[in-house]
Design a protein around this nucleic acid. Structure first.
Lengths: 276, 276
DNA sequence: CCAAAAACGTAACAATCGATACAGCGCGCG
DNA sequence: CGCGCGCTGTATCGATTGTTACGTTTTTGG
């Protein structure tokens, strides 16, 4: 479906009989609403008879009127989803977004503004290494984001682990990790001491650490190979982790693209596993 | 033309019966295309019967379905012809944000555009009830968001539980829940059957269900008191849960404000507990 | 806890829709 | 000038639509 119906029509309009051309013109004139009404309405509005409308539609390559309308609606749906001008059209009580929402959006933009494509690439490269194992963990409020990443990464590559449960268990896991492996940590203030100790121990063992933190930088930054500082300040009693979350999603997306060829086979196997 | 239909709906949605509210939600979720199809399509998509759709339309003040559709089309026509030509929506009008980031930001804005302050208020009121217990759960990828909410809510109010572990345990937890309690569910496609069954059982027990889903609406919407439809589509192999996450944060913020007086004491006690 | 009211779905109806067959009209080539 | 082909409108049929009545279920109020 490369071309829209509008282009299709203007292309072929010259090669049409008079009646069908009138149909085409009225459709273009108020596109695409004329095509969403009934055949009778359409025909009357164009000043032709109903069969002419149907012949016109058939000439465009559709098997019946319903198929034509369906295509038109899909096209329209795609258009309506991108811009958000809809809700603020009339009598803008929507003059300003809620302060918290605006701040969150700014945070996200700001966060991405400070992450260079090169850094992104390097982090993805670390996570994409086929022989590396990836261990994710977060703090009290950020651990869910670590889980979110783990849930996706488990699907596209092997050896992905989320460090959950007792803190003493974390340390024990370190024994399985080496220089090529990655410890992916989320830590925002108030920074958790337990995470710092884990990171320090991991660092001593030569494990690669990727840290996602806030703009004041967790002390773990000292041991990290890569540090991503997200903005978290919002007009609320809490800090916002939204920017970190979106960054995690971006990372997942990039990683998926990079691993596309290798993970395709894996995903297929997973599908059959689930159904079996 | 004073008010648009969308506003009309969000205004009156609270005063509607369950079935008609579901119709309203599906119409808002993908506005206004759902209303331009046939009654049968609309009803099936909303999971209700055709007469319910007609009653819904009648409640909005229209004499028949045709009149409703006509109004919807006029509204759409005015919107399509006004501002930007629709052909140049594709090319980069911004300062070169990555496509995925731009899509995510749009999704967030769009999602909040569809949530009325009133609905927000009602959800917060449910979560703020001092005698209610709150149980949160999510699907494969969204459960981390449920955890994130739970982590915050636990601090500002009692009786907050995240349903984790074996699926069979979820059901057993239902035994502690009654009419005043809340089951807060995240569910995006591919919708999980286990969550649906949980929600159905909970609904039969009269438990209030708040559902955060995607724009295609999880089948759980059928049992939910409140449905929030977030946008999840991004140019990636995955869907994006960022909008749901930000919504969760907004909910946490609002809830905190509402409970400020009651939770202050609680937070103080927690502080001393941690240090003690 | 029970009675009254509201809401919902099933089933049937009539109106309307999309689709097809057929006949009249206009146009161009021989 | 007349013959034939393509385009168009009228008439018609079956399918689908919107709509209504009715019985069951759910919710509300006392």
């Amino acid at each position: 479906m490369g071309t829209s119906i509008a282009e299709l029509i203007t292309d072929r309009m010259d090669a049409m009989p008079a009646g069908e051309r009138r149909a085409a013109q009225t459709l273009i004139a108020n596109y695409p609403l004329a095509g969403l009404k009934t055949v009778a309405d359409f025909s009357q509005h164009a000043g032709v008879s109903s069969p002419t409308i149907l012949r016109f539609v058939a000439r465009l390559g559709f098997h019946n009127y319903a198929e034509f309308q369906a295509t038109l609606q899909h096209e329209l749906a795609a258009q309506l989803q991108s811009p958000l001008s809809r809700t603020e059209r009339q009598s803008g009580h929507r003059g300003e977004e809620p302060a918290m929402l605006a701040a969150t959006l700014d945070n996200i933009r700001e966060t991405f503004g400070h992450v260079s494509p090169r850094q992104m690439d390097e982090i993805v490269a670390l996570l994409a290494h086929p022989r590396a194992s990836i261990h994710l963990i977060g703090g009290r409020f950020t651990d869910p984001i670590a889980r979110y990443m783990a849930a996706h990464m488990t699907i596209i590559r092997p050896a992905v682990f989320h460090l959950s449960g007792q803190e003493s268990n974390w340390r024990d896991r370190l024994i399985d990790m080496g220089r090529r492996d990655v410890l992916f940590v989320f830590d925002i203030r108030r920074y958790q001491d337990s995470l710092l100790q884990l990171a320090e121990t991991a660092h001593k063992r030569g494990i690669q650490i990727v840290l996602v933190t806030d703009q004041w930088l967790s002390p773990i930054a000292r041991f990290a190979r890569h540090v991503v500082a997200g903005r978290t300040a919002v007009p609320s009693a809490w800090d916002s982790s939204a920017a970190l979350f979106v960054f995690a999603e971006a990372l997942i997306g990039e990683l998926t693209r990079r691993l596309e060829s290798e993970s395709a086979k894996r995903i297929g196997e997973l599908e059959t596993l689930r159904k079996g």
